[in-house]
Every structure is written in structure tokens, then in C-alpha cells.
């Protein structure tokens, strides 16, 4: 039960930390509007990045929002790194390699879980074998592209004069750890063979709580390193994969005009008591934002 305890504990801790971080960000107070065009959910103006504020007397008309357009925008951004392609092309191929490796690994793990379930319910070997082969090839591409991406980015950050001054110990640690995950996976793949079978079986025994017999060393190394990475992930800046939702939906694309629900929260926030030291602010920790904002003007006409 050693592997079961370790893996479930690590997954539980990592997920717990991730949820904690996300909830903390979600619970931050509503902020003043700070949207930024293009806001892709506008149904009719998406092509040029226009918003409902173009509409004459927009407050009398329903705002028609698209669900598909923001998804298309984010898909292009996440899968093809559109922003980097457009504005930082020299970085794009390396970053695309790394991210492709990550996405393929996630896809591979997902397929593996499905295959593990199929093995557990004793589906015919024809199906699970095909799945395992697909998983193997996905894993190979993932390990190769991910390794190339991570290692090349380490070198790029070391020698590129634009990136070097900004590259911190944290940046290198993240990339090196990712490189180790991918390289260990590649080593296991080439050394062991039948990677898809190996991983599917392993996961199947995890799910059914069966005893996991001795695994090959290279596989153990890959699993151990991946688990360490998974434990580290939620405390690192690599959680941008979750946080991006907030940066886009809660800030950049948050062009919702004031409504009753928001107003109630804002009245509470306007009742907060700020405390800044500059004399002109008129704050002393006693007056509320609302009171300061409504202060009588010192007028002489």
C-alpha cells in the first residue's frame, strides 16, 4: 500500500493547496472596473474588439454575450500561445515546445486513467492494448517536445540578453524540474518500452487498491519525480494555468456594469476605513471611503 498512500496523499495535498490558492483569489474584494479591449464576449463586435459601450444608450439594450468567442480566444492563447507569437516571436518556438509537451502529458495521463478503469473492469485486451499504444506514442512526443522546450528555455534564459536579467532562481528551478520530469519519462520510455502498458497497469492497481509489485527502476524514478513536481506545482507561479482565468475573466474581460448584487458588496467596501498618511487623503482610519469621497469641497466662489 506504499504507493497508494504516497500518491493519494500527495495528490490530496497538492489539490488542497491549489484549491486554497484559487479560493483566496476568488474571495478578494470586487475591484473597480479595469477592463481592456479586445473583450471577445461581445457577439457583434468581436472582429475589431469593440464593446457594448459603442451602442447608443446602451443601458436600455440587452448586452448580447457570446460563450463560444471567449473560448476560441482562450484556446488560441493556450494551445498556440497566440500572444507570444504576435509579440515575442523569438521566444515562441521554445515556449510552444514546452507547453505542447505539458498538454500532451496531461492528455496522456487522462487517457491512462481511462485505460486504467477499463483494465480494472476487465475490458477485452484488444481495446486496452490499442489505448496503451496510443498512450505510449503520446507519451513519447510529450517527453521529447517537453524536454526540448524546457532545456532550450533554460539556455535561452541564460544567454538571451533580454531574458537573462529577469531570470530568477525560481524561473530556473521551475524549468529544470520540468526538464527532469520529461527527461526521466523519456529515459523510462526508451529503456523500458511499452510505457503505455506500464503506466495503465500501475494506475489500474492504484484505483483498485491492489498491491503494486516491484516496478522497474526507471519507472519508479519517473513517478517519484512527477509526484515531487505535482507537490511543488501549487506553491509555484506555474499555477498560472488556473490563475489566468482570473486575470482574464475577473479583470480584463470584466466589463459588467454595476448591478444589484455588486452594489451590495460595494456598499460594504465603501464602508471600509482606509488609512493613508498623506495629508490630502483625509484618511485617519476613522472615515470610510464613502465619507471621504463625499467630503465637502473647500470652495470659494
Amino acid at each position: 500500500m506504499f504507493w497508494h498512500i504516497i500518491i493519494f496523499s500527495i495528490c490530496g495535498i497538492a489539490l488542497g493547496i491549489l484549491i486554497y490558492r484559487v479560493v483566496n483569489i476568488a474571495r478578494l474584494p470586487v475591484h473597480l472596473r479595469w477592463e481592456l479591449a479586445p473583450v471577445p464576449h461581445d457577439k457583434t463586435r468581436e472582429k475589431y474588439g469593440g464593446s457594448y459601450l459603442e451602442e447608443q444608450e446602451w443601458w436600455k439594450k440587452p448586452v448580447r454575450k457570446s460563450i463560444i468567442q471567449p473560448l476560441k480566444y482562450m484556446a488560441a492563447e493556450i494551445i498556440f500561445l497566440r500572444g507570444v507569437w504576435k509579440n515575442n516571436r523569438s521566444l515562441w518556438p521554445f515556449s510552444l515546445c514546452l507547453h505542447s509537451g505539458i498538454y500532451l502529458m496531461i492528455g496522456m495521463l487522462f487517457l491512462c486513467l481511462i485505460n486504467a478503469l477499463l483494465i480494472a473492469i476487465e475490458l477485452p485486451a484488444d481495446i486496452t492494448d490499442i489505448m496503451a499504444e496510443t498512450i505510449s506514442y503520446m507519451a513519447l512526443i510529450s517527453f521529447l517536445t517537453g524536454s526540448v522546450g524546457a532545456i532550450s528555455l533554460v539556455f535561452k534564459r541564460l544567454i538571451d540578453h533580454d531574458l537573462k536579467p529577469f531570470s530568477t532562481a525560481g524561473s530556473f528551478f521551475n524549468l529544470v524540474l520540468l526538464a527532469i520530469v520529461f527527461v526521466s519519462g523519456a529515459v523510462c520510455w526508451f529503456y523500458q518500452g511499452e510505457f503505455g502498458d506500464l503506466l495503465s497497469l500501475f494506475l489500474s492497481k492504484l484505483i483498485t487498491l491492489e498491491v503494486i509489485r516491484v516496478m522497474p527502476l526507471t519507472f519508479i524514478l519517473y513517478v517519484a519525480i512527477s509526484l515531487l513536481f505535482f507537490l511543488y506545482l501549487p506553491v509555484s507561479s506555474m499555477t498560472h494555468f488556473m490563475i489566468k482565468y482570473f486575470l482574464y475573466h475577473a479583470v480584463r474581460w470584466n466589463d459588467k456594469p454595476l448591478n444589484a448584487r455588486m452594489e451590495s458588496e460595494l456598499r460594504n467596501l465603501l464602508a471600509e476605513k482606509p488609512h493613508w498618511s498623506a495629508a490630502h487623503t483625509g484618511t485617519d482610519g476613522q472615515k470610510t471611503w464613502g465619507e471621504i469621497g463625499n467630503g465637502v469641497r473647500d470652495e470659494k466662489q
Binding site: H31, W34, L163
Partner: peptide
Amino acid sequence: QPLLLSLDFCARCQT
């Protein structure tokens, strides 16, 4: 919220 997000999630890629 926008400030904390911008402080904590810069990838320092210079885009």
C-alpha cells in the same frame, strides 16, 4: 485583486 495577480504571475518573458 488585479494588483496581486499582476505581481505574482509574471512569467518574465519580456513579451
